[in-house]
């Protein structure tokens, strides 16, 4: 039998259609709820539940198959490539928002202030508008909220940067432990990483509360608020996902999964976490410093 050489092709799966139904009801429900449809919210929650069910069911099946040894090296490489290119798509998604930040800051706002060949833009639209960054005084103050201030780099953001950077270090420590097969050190490193991730998220929530309640810095605070909350918000979402994935990996390590020769799940999640970490570093530098 040559079966061990064969690429594993599963024979049919229900999970994708479950995922599609979940996705359609999540997004369809969300869109309806935006227009005051009460059923929409219910549909949205239902969709989310279905998607979570699908993710755990699907991934659980993959983990079982992986642990039973029916995946050969080639299947493993497919998963690696899939993960790698998925992350690339994430990079491009963030690039759109970083691009919007760059464009607003370096082009749109100065042009509104009359820079370049846009002298009359400023004169005709909002003659009193002054182009500064961070943009506090939006051109049309009747339409958007004017914040009292912005979040300063030396408050929560610096602590958060420290938390995430430390978590990257503890994760790398766990990674080395995995390669050297020191099980307790992996678990300790992963727990430390997860705790730091949760601390980061808690501080982020506190920061948002501070911005909304005391500073009047909101999504509605013009382009500064828009880019600030969308970038940090999507980043926070990714930290949340990363933390959940790390918890799953921790559970698997405790159950004795992974060894120095077979641990793609760990590597994929570790890389994801490092990626989220670097996005934060980029946010910290480009939003707060440069």
């Amino acid at each position: 039998m040559q079966s061990n050489n064969q690429y594993f092709v599963p024979h049919g799966s229900y999970w994708p259609i479950v995922g599609s139904v979940g996705m359609a009801s999540l997004l369809g429900g969300f869109a309806s709820s935006l227009h005051g449809n009460v059923l929409g919210t219910g549909l949205m929650v239902l969709g989310l539940v279905i998607i979570i069910f699908m993710v755990f069911g699907w991934m659980g099946q993959v983990v079982l198959e992986s642990e039973s040894g029916i995946y050969n090296k080639q299947v493993d490489r497919s998963f690696r490539m899939g993960m790698g290119w998925f992350i690339f798509s994430e990079v491009m998604f963030f690039a759109a928002f970083f691009g919007a930040l760059w464009y607003a800051r370096n082009l749109a706002v100065p042009w509104l202030g009359g820079e370049g060949n846009n002298f009359f833009t400023g004169q005709v639209l909002w003659p009193d508008f002054k182009a500064v960054w961070p943009l506090i005084q939006v051109p049309d103050v009747s339409k958007y909220t004017v914040p009292k201030g912005i979040i300063h780099a030396w408050e929560i953001p610096a602590i958060n940067t420290l938390a995430l950077l430390t978590s990257g270090a503890t994760l790398t420590w766990a990674h080395w432990a995995l390669l050297n097969n020191k099980r307790n050190q992996i678990i300790a490193g992963l727990i430390a990483t997860i705790v730091l991730g949760v601390i980061f998220l808690a501080l982020q929530v506190a920061e948002y509360g501070e911005a909304y309640q005391h500073l009047d810095l909101k999504l509605t605070s013009g382009i500064y608020g828009s880019t600030f909350f969308m970038l940090t918000g999507f980043h926070g979402l990714h930290v949340t996902l990363g933390t959940i994935m790390l918890i799953v990996i921790l559970m698997r390590v405790i159950r004795g999964h992974f060894n120095p020769e077979n641990h793609f799940g760990f590597e994929g999640v570790a890389w994801y976490w490092h990626f989220v970490d670097v996005v934060w570093l980029g946010l910290f530098i480009f939003v707060y410093w440069l």
Binding site: L34, A100, Y103, A104, L107, A108, V109, W111, L112, L125, L135, V138, P139, D140, K143, Y144, K218, L219, T220, S221, G222, I223, Y224, G225, S226, T227, F229, M230
Partner: peptide, 14 residues
Amino acid sequence: NFGTSFFDAAGGGD
């Protein structure tokens, strides 16, 4: 839906 101003010059977008 959420009041951002990416594409609205009144909020500094474009």
